[in-house]
């Protein structure tokens, strides 16, 4: 218990990265982080070992993000997502990453950037580890295609 707030504080940058990866603007991202931190503070009585805290927080964040994103998901995916690009980095890869469907983006982010194990990422997203690996595969495939296509200036002809 005594280290709860200190651990929480250490996790804030990870929460922020996740929110930025998933949302279209920095203000919205920080708002989600704030909501999650407030929620975490309300649960100070819950046992949370230091190792599990980050996954617990990220899972809370994923639920909040999906709750916010789902109602306008169609719109989000069919429109260019320019803001995310500038929020993350203006590279071709970042653009492709920002264009990934929500679940794929989450899986790629949690595993590539936060270096979570497949099991931990599954816990965050509340899905089986097999599904996480499939999302990861799908997401990476899209990244490869998008970046490759951009670099060569022509669609790839496949194998």
């Amino acid at each position: 218990m005594s280290g709860f707030l200190a651990s929480l504080e250490q996790a804030v940058p990870a929460l922020r990265r996740y929110a930025l990866a998933m949302l279209s603007d920095q203000r919205g991202a920080d708002d989600v982080v704030r909501t999650c931190l407030a929620r975490a503070l309300d649960r100070t009585h819950e046992p949370g070992e230091a190792t599990g805290l980050r996954v617990w927080l990220l899972a809370m964040m994923y639920r909040e993000l999906t709750a916010r994103l789902r109602p306008r998901r169609r719109r989000l995916f069919s429109s260019p997502i320019g803001n995310i690009v500038s929020a993350v980095a203006s590279t071709e890869l970042s653009r492709a990453f920002s264009g990934l469907p929500l679940e794929q983006r989450s899986a790629v982010f949690l595993i590539s950037v936060e270096d979570l194990s497949y099991a931990a990422a599954a816990e965050v997203m509340g899905i089986p580890a097999v599904t996480v690996v499939n999302l990861l595969k799908g997401g990476r495939e899209r990244l490869r295609q998008a970046v490759g296509a951009g670099a060569s200036g022509a669609p790839q002809t496949g194998s």
Binding site: R16, R17, T91, S94, V113, G148
Partner: peptide, 16 residues
């Protein structure tokens, strides 16, 4: 390519 993407994404988020 996947490894390069992994590293590039890491770098993109590192500033946060």
């Amino acid at each position: 390519t996947d490894i390069a993407h992994r590293q590039a994404l890491n770098a993109a988020f590192a500033k946060y």
